[in-house]
């Protein structure tokens, strides 16, 4: 009997590892080795063309250049970081709130044509990012649909803008209305912080970046809505019935019961949002290539550009690893915040 069990254990061990073999090979070659490559070659000056073996080891110089070098590389990195951060700060809260709103609405018991609405809201989420970018590039033209629609709903007050060619930061535009600009307040332009002037830091997203942000929100809402919807449908109906018995109104039920019960889902949705927005790439590649005036340069696009356009693979890898660290820290902070609220 004892030997029987032992034999069974051995067979299980063999079967288990055999079943895992394809996964282990693919992950070994295309995930684990690349991680090691990323770590090592970020410490070299490899250019992407010569054999990697000939690349010289330069220690932390790439990181040094990007973070504190004082040159164009430092400037580009912080520009990209600034743009990406504005992007995430704008997109994540809006798409999370709208997705939650739509999920609650579509989940209403008495709503008719439910599946039609659900399908319509989810549709952009199944489409290729390149196809959507091209469609919006068309819609964002100066005489395109989006300017027309904005002008229609504002009764003609909206002045058409050439969205993808407009490098003005929206905070700059607002500050200008208040009479604040870099000429009137020279220290804003003269004080430099990490290679960018204070005035640059507070630009807000440019009109071009805002265009990509709006499009990105529009495409992502559907997926997030469905995630919220699944969570809503899993909720115990008894809790709601009890609350209704106690005479609680719709808004109170939403705020006191639905929202707290949705907290794990919200955490998940915000994490997905942060991971996604900090890696925006396809849309930038197709719509703007980082322009105008580098105002749509994102960190992910900078990784690609350093490696494949400027032939500074070592530099690109350093930026990629810094991006990983940033995303990791943000997720940790976010987890801390969500757990803190629970206590």
């Amino acid at each position: 009997m004892a030997t029987g069990i032992k034999q069974q254990d051995r067979q299980d061990a063999i079967a288990g590892w055999l079943f895992m073999t394809p996964t282990l090979i693919i992950f070994g070659i295309f995930v684990f080795i690349p991680i090691l490559f990323a770590l090592y070659f970020s410490l070299t000056d490899w250019n992407g063309i010569s054999p990697p073996g000939e690349a010289a080891f330069v220690g932390l110089r790439n990181y040094q250049d990007v973070l504190f070098g004082g040159g164009i590389r430092q400037q580009d990195f912080y520009k990209a970081l600034k743009n990406t951060t504005y992007f995430a700060l704008g997109v994540v809260p809006v798409q999370t709130a709208l997705a939650l709103f739509l999920a609650v609405v579509v989940n209403q018991r008495f709503l008719r044509f439910k599946s039609f609405f659900r399908t319509a809201y989810y549709f952009p989420a199944i489409t290729s990012s390149v196809a959507i970018s091209l469609i919006f590039l068309f819609l964002y033209q100066k005489d395109g649909l989006i300017n027309e629609a904005l002008s229609f709903v504002t009764f003609g007050a909206w002045k058409p803008v050439a969205w993808m060619a407009d490098a003005r930061g929206i905070f700059h535009i607002w500050l200008n209305w208040l009479g604040v600009n870099s000429e009137r307040v020279p220290w804003l332009a003269n004080t430099s912080l990490l290679g960018l002037s204070v005035w640059d830091w507070i630009s807000g997203p440019s009109i071009a970046l805002l265009a990509i942000m709006l499009m990105n929100t529009w495409t992502t809402i559907g997926t997030l809505m469905v995630i919220f919807l699944a969570a809503l449908q899993d909720m115990p109906p008894q809790v709601y019935e009890a609350a209704q018995m106690d005479g609680a109104g719709t808004w109170t039920i939403f705020r006191r019961i639905t929202l707290p019960l949705l907290r794990p889902t919200t955490f998940f949705v915000v994490t997905l949002g942060l991971m996604g927005t900090y890696q925006v790439f396809d849309q930038v590649y197709v719509m703007s290539s980082g322009g105008p005036a580098k105002t749509t340069l994102t960190v992910a696009y900078l990784v690609y550009r350093s490696g494949f356009n400027n032939f500074e693979m070592g530099m690109g890898l350093a930026v990629a690893i810094l991006l990983f660290i940033i995303i990791f820290i943000l997720t940790m902070i976010q987890r801390r915040v969500t757990e803190g609220e629970k206590a």
């Binding site: 690349p34 070659f41 790439f281 992910a300 490696g307 997720t331």
Partner: peptide, 16 residues
């Protein structure tokens, strides 16, 4: 590995 953003592996994937 799910924690690792795809963009981080872009260049090393090309190398492999």
């Amino acid at each position: 590995t799910m924690m690792i953003p795809g963009i981080v592996l872009l260049i090393p994937m090309f190398m492999v």
